[in-house]
Amino acid sequence: MSDTVTLTINGRSITVPRQTTILDAARQLGIDIPVICYHPHLTANGLCRVCSVEAGGRTQAAACVTACAEGMVVQTDSEPVRYGRRTILEMLAATVNLAEAPEILALIAEYGADAARFPDAVQRESPIHDDNPFYLRDYNQCINCWRCVQVCANDAQFAFALNFDHRGYFTTIGTFMGDGLMDTTCVFCGQCVGVCPTGALKPKRQALLEQGVDPDDIFYQTRQKRKRKP
């Protein structure tokens, strides 16, 4: 078995090592496939599906998790592909507040998605968690990209403070029995805040500054002692 495969993407031929994803192969050709959940340093789970492309199968294929195959013919920007992306974006816009997710807002504009398409939609609502001096969690802005859960667990920190509440549409990120982060195994490494694409996780200083709080006050509000670990 050869170590490389040759395929065409939007009519252009390319040879790549076996196991290369369609996303990476397309990038080598300078073809841009949109992504939302994908992050180059984290395990790709194929969640958002806006990277879906036509690759000759019964259904479209998520480019970030689908390996290139010999003779594959890929279309990254056909009408069915754009149709699916547009609808995912329209549905997502009716789910949570995307005001601080500039990349997603750009995609909504690029694909002509009507963010007001589903006016009666039930939004995924959640109280704001202000339970520690370091960062805020506002899951009204959370798209369930799993990045924070992953960095908190096997992808980086092995702290296992975050997991999920509920399932299906009402899935939200949660802690054990809803405990405040000070009472969990969180080590306040801040990695989740760093990878969050939507502003759902935000450093407390930044949130307070945005609210117009005086920087001196912010110093007092955020300098509490860290919880001592047992």
Binding site: I36, N45, G46, L47, C48, R49, V50, G84, T87, I88, M91, L92, A94, T95, F118, D120, A121, V122, I143, N144, F164, H166, R167, G168, Y169, F170, T171
Partner: peptide, 25 residues
């Protein structure tokens, strides 16, 4: 389907809910 979607991927997690909302009305 809205009740049973696992919630992993966006099209089904959100689509089953939007589909149900419309059919409920």
């Amino acid at each position: 389907f809205a009740h049973e979607s696992c919630g992993k991927c966006f099209p089904c997690q959100i689509g089953t809910q939007r589909q149900m909302e419309i059919l409920q009305r």
